[in-house]
Design a protein around this nucleic acid. Sequence first.
RNA 1: GCGCCGUUAGCUCAGUUGGAUUUAGAGUGCUGCCCUCCGAAGGCAGAGGUCAGGGGUUCAAGUCCCUUACGGCGCACCA
Length: 551
Amino acid sequence: MNAPFDLRSELQDWLSAAIAQAAPGAVPAIGLERPKQAQHGDYATTVALQLAKPLRANPREVATRIVAALKPSPWVESTEIAGAGFINIRLTPVARQAVVREIHARGALFGTSTAGHKRRVMIEFVSANPTGPLHVGHGRQAALGDALANVLAAQGWDVYREFYYNDTGEQINNLTRSVQARIRQLRDPDAPFPNAAYHGEYVRELARDYIATHPEDPQGENAEAVRVSAVAALRREQDRDLAAFGVRFDNYYLESSLYTEGHVERTVEALVKSGQTYEQDGALWLKTTGYGDDKDRVMKKSDGAFTYFVPDVAYHVTKWARGFERVINVQGADHHSTVTRVRAGLRALAIGIPDGFPDYLLHQMVTVMRGGEEVKISKRAGSYVTVRDLIDEVGRDAVRFFFLMRKADSQLTFDIELAKVQTEENPVYYVQYAHARICSVLRQAQQAGIDRTTILQARLDPLTSAYENALLRLLADYPVMVEAASRDLAPHAIPFYLKDLAAAFHSYYNAEHFLVKDPDLRLARLSLVAATGQVLKNGLALLGVAAPEQM
RNA sequence: GCGCCGUUAGCUCAGUUGGAUUUAGAGUGCUGCCCUCCGAAGGCAGAGGUCAGGGGUUCAAGUCCCUUACGGCGCACCA
């Protein structure tokens, strides 16, 4: 296949040549933006404004010199200098229409790039403790991490998805005690249940499950066996939920393996050897304040156990050692405080890990509304909404789309009734409907004897109306949008783009007929419509949302 | 008290490395229209905002800096 045609690069090269002549030595980054108003042209650049200061010249004069040096281009109909020194570029119809041909040529690959050069990137997400089912917060993270992984893969990165199980430590001990208490209650309903234990109904199920499979230990006295049984059962359940959500991982990393394989021990030794630790109050401390932390952190508690951040550091050493120079951790913002200290631990080791490793995508909390009231999320109280509940009630596509419609920095309110009941207000249906409608049009074209190959090869020059130009412009913006979503770790840009694209299509649909008498116009419109369908499908695929052919 | 995030239309939210004519966008809600015609799960039009308040930087600030207020989350020898 030929190298993808990239109009923006063409224009940047074209401007660059003129700048080299008009302002020798200046090599500015040439930003091309979409003017807010169509009458200002198809693209605009502020490069003259940026060059004005270093050249000590009037921006309009700089713009004049650049424009005078521009060579004729088959893509550019006209240029004009406007306002303070903007250079507005008006494309030829051929340049606007070229994107349709490009979409048909590249199909599912339209919007992808090789920018990542197959470099490896690990995305760690969900990483729920096996102490209960996945709740809505994990759902947001699953949707976010999965979409981010898709976006980075689309940009040419070799993406590796990892789930980290904290299958050891105090919270697991608490789970074990909780299950043991429920086992005792099975024999004696009056047996005490600790207040701090996990109260969820699932703990009773784990207890019943244990005595059914461990006849040799009817009292649940073997804590290790109870732990293994409970963790395994919860992992199976989490796996089922993730599968139902359409999320898969390349690897599940067990915290316990960090101990059994000696990673924790070696990390501690290395940190002690680095000379950045000290003992105080019977505990071992790391001088994280040397790396931007506001206080030093305990590594080894006075009871001899390590604090959570030690295995965390050891875990990230393994990520680095496994060859991932880029790692993105998707986490709730309530874990924000770990960022500084994990990085501090890695820097203290001085094994070449740069500052800023790993990278983090932190998301704000999720609130669930049911029946106009907030549902409190408390694992211990056993009152929360699980990912499974949401998928069952709302549907996988809507759940994913809703979780991705907010930027990670925004708190998200998931109103179950709204997502479920008012389907006509649900944006995911709006976008999916646009795709289904396009498929319907193409089916009718096919029934009229117009085959797909003919549509893909149609002459495009009849596409000149305002509706068509609006669609062409949005289609051309798709690869730029995906690139930005990747660069900014901002998958939410995709749902917003898709809503805009669907809206432009629905307007077009209501304003014009596609299956018109004029064969050239008919084919050109069908070609544009097919291209729109392809891009909707590509975008939805990044979100992990289905693109139905009929609804 | 310290740190991070947020504050944009009645409500829910976008706003791309700060950019353009006295006009800051979308959805939803509200008002009024559009199917003898490719799926009305759609479209068109209208009303609705001193971009939380105040300073500052800049030719140019919703966007950057400082500050105040309000809200969320952290600040454990829990993860």
